[in-house]
Design a protein around this nucleic acid. Structure first.
Lengths: 225, 225
DNA sequence: GAAATGGTTGAGAATTCGCTGAGCGATTCC
DNA sequence: GGAATCGCTCAGCGAATTCTCAACCATTTC
């Protein structure tokens, strides 16, 4: 299911939207301001961004322009308090894909998101991933190191896919746990380490150099050394 | 494999596209202008039409409108030289299913075509399906493994047909249930497993190697191992 | 250089997942 | 009407997977 990022400075509304979308089966992330939004985009690569127009600091337009400059393909659904035509025009010109005027019914939002995802050309992100001689195809679930293919279990696959979606980017432990395991509690749990171990064993089975590097005290990265 | 018609007035580009798509295993037809395109459509009933926007005489839009008037269900992928927003909008409104801006990488075109074909509701014409020594003819309902033919019940047939329409592609359990049984609830139901069992029994009755592989925690694939 | 912190590893327990055989009701065929 | 076929449910087994735990390294801090 699609990843959706919701951005609004009103925590109440934000929480309501989050729950609605979660209930609909989306993978939901949230942010309360523009900068937070951009870092969430970095971290989770959402397919759809529900973006409030008016926010203190970096507003919706600014966030969107930033995204378009970075050539991010996420679909943007703008939320605006007033129905002013000039806003609408300005918004669409700056690259929003759809519009919703507050107040709106949650069901309306859900319908609009589904409509966006149904648009031609919209593909949930499952393109083959590759970095150096490591590659992974989400469609066939084939994983290979150079010429050698290897098998992964489902958790291992999810983890490697997440890592490879962000090559050369250091991912924090909590970030990975949140994304792959869906939780985040600070418990003394070492599942992640164990699974990194599994992946290394399989990706280096023929004596290849290490691709999953440890960033002590922080997390892990996929990177050639 | 799908029939693809490529239409472009530049013979060089046309030839390049033809080869790329042939190499990908598509059945390819070509036309250099609008009228030729329409007669190719008549002759070969393509599943996908790659259509240049700008052509002397009958241009892409005209061809497409003609098709839509004739209620042709072919998927149309428009090629356009400029990224102009108004073009994009006009094109989508007149019924194109996807867009590609020139210049593009051949791999991009291939990916887009695959994406179109993967859309829900898109069904290739009833061509015989084959993968390795497994084959299935939707018209005669004949199924065979090498020289040996075998019988399937109607549900079994539907399931195998669906699997074989997406060879090497891992299909998730829910996807299969949705497509073949028409439902999707998360109930603890094991019809699918049972039917996979039936299919395996029949496709491997003479001791042939397994063709329907289990992807634990995900679903199934038709693939040689 | 000892202690503390953080990461790696192996063993195995707990859990989940998929496969199979038995069987039940509905429909079709004889 | 009885037999065969079909689509399906269910329970139990076995195996793959996920996770926990504890011992063991490695690096940093004091």
């Amino acid at each position: 299911m699609a990843n959706v990022l919701v951005v609004d400075d009103d925590p109440k509304l934000l929480n309501m939207l989050r729950r609605t979308l979660l209930y609909e089966g989306f993978h939901v992330f949230a942010a309360t301001n523009g900068n937070e939004a951009l870092s969430e985009v970095q971290a989770h690569r959402p397919d759809v961004i529900v973006l409030d127009w008016m926010m203190p600091g970096k507003d919706g337009i600014a966030v969107m322009q930033h995204l378009r400059d970075a050539n991010d393909k996420a679909l943007v659904l703008m939320l605006t308090a007033k129905d002013a035509v000039e806003n609408r025009v300005e918004g669409l010109e700056s690259g929003a894909d759809d519009y919703l005027v507050k107040p709106f019914a949650p069901a309306e939002l859900v319908a609009r998101i589904h409509a966006l995802l149904r648009r031609p050309g919209v593909e949930l992100k499952d393109e083959p991933l590759a970095y150096a001689d490591l590659s992974l195809d989400p469609v066939t679930r084939e994983t290979r190191r150079g010429e050698r293919t290897f098998e992964l279990t489902s958790k291992e696959f999810d983890l490697l896919r997440y890592l490879m979606r962000h090559p050369r980017q250091v991912l924090r432990r909590e970030q990975i746990l949140e994304e792959v395991w869906g939780y985040d509690f600070g418990g003394d749990d070492n599942v992640l380490e164990v699974y990194i171990g599994y992946l290394r064993k399989k990706t280096e089975a023929a004596g290849e150099p290490r691709m999953i590097q440890t960033m002590r005290g922080v997390g892990y990265v996929v990177r050639e050394e």
